[in-house]
Simulated assay, not measured.
Amino acid sequence: MKLYPLGDKVVLKQLEAEETTKSGIILAAKSQEKPQEATVLAVGDGKVDGKEIAMTVKEGDKVVYSKYAGTEVKLGEEEYVICKMSDILAKVE
């Protein structure tokens, strides 16, 4: 099954949460903060209310998005985030 975003929406695959701190302390699952970094899996066509919005990301880009942005979706065993293009803050290179 594949997700096809509509309009100015983007499908993201969140990166895994850090399980240890930089100093080597192992974090419990409850204390692991979800990362705001993700990989773009699919991009909509950019049309909203008859206007075209420039989609500045493409499949495979690594991005940082707003902390409370988007909708979390679970398909099978995989979890995804669907958010608006405007919720993406930056590309990561």
Rank of each mutant, 00 (worst) to 15 (best):
G70I: 05
L89I: 15
V92H: 03
M85S: 13
G44I: 12
K22H: 04
T56H: 13
V81K: 07
E52Q: 14
S66I: 00
K58P: 05
E37G: 02
L41Y: 11
E33L: 07
A28E: 15
A54Y: 13
K84V: 01
G46F: 13
K84Q: 09
L75V: 13
L15E: 14
K62P: 01
V92R: 07
V92K: 12
E19F: 06
E52P: 00
L15D: 14
G60T: 07
G7N: 11
I88P: 00
Q32K: 15
A17F: 00
V73W: 10
A54D: 15
S86G: 02
G7L: 07
A29N: 01
A42F: 01
K58T: 13
A69M: 09
D61H: 02
Y80E: 13
K74W: 00
Q14N: 07
K84I: 02
V10N: 01
D45R: 10
T20A: 12
K13Q: 14
L6V: 12
K51M: 03
K30C: 09
G76P: 01
I26M: 11
V40Y: 10
I88T: 09
G70F: 03
Q32N: 02
V81S: 06
T56P: 04
L27N: 08
K47S: 09
G44W: 07
A28F: 12
G50I: 02
P5A: 06
A38V: 07
D87Y: 12
K2Y: 06
G24Q: 13
T56C: 09
S23E: 06
G44Y: 04
L12F: 07
I26A: 14
P5H: 06
D8V: 12
T20C: 12
K58N: 05
K47N: 03
Y68L: 13
K34S: 12
V81L: 12
Y68M: 09
S23Y: 04
V81Q: 04
K34A: 14
D49S: 05
Q14H: 00
A28T: 15
K67Y: 12
T20H: 14
E33P: 10
D61S: 01
Q14Y: 07
E33H: 11
L15F: 14
L6M: 01
Y80H: 08
A42Q: 10
P35W: 05
V10A: 00
V63T: 08
K62F: 05
L12W: 11
G46T: 05
L12P: 03
G24P: 08
E59Q: 05
E59R: 06
K13C: 03
T21F: 06
L27G: 06
T21L: 08
Q36T: 14
A90R: 14
G50Q: 04
K84N: 12
E93C: 01
C83R: 03
K22L: 10
E33Q: 14
K51S: 11
L3A: 01
S23Q: 03
V40C: 11
Y68R: 00
Y68Q: 08
V81H: 01
E79R: 15
V92W: 02
L75A: 04
A54H: 13
G7T: 01
P35D: 08
K74N: 04
K91Q: 10
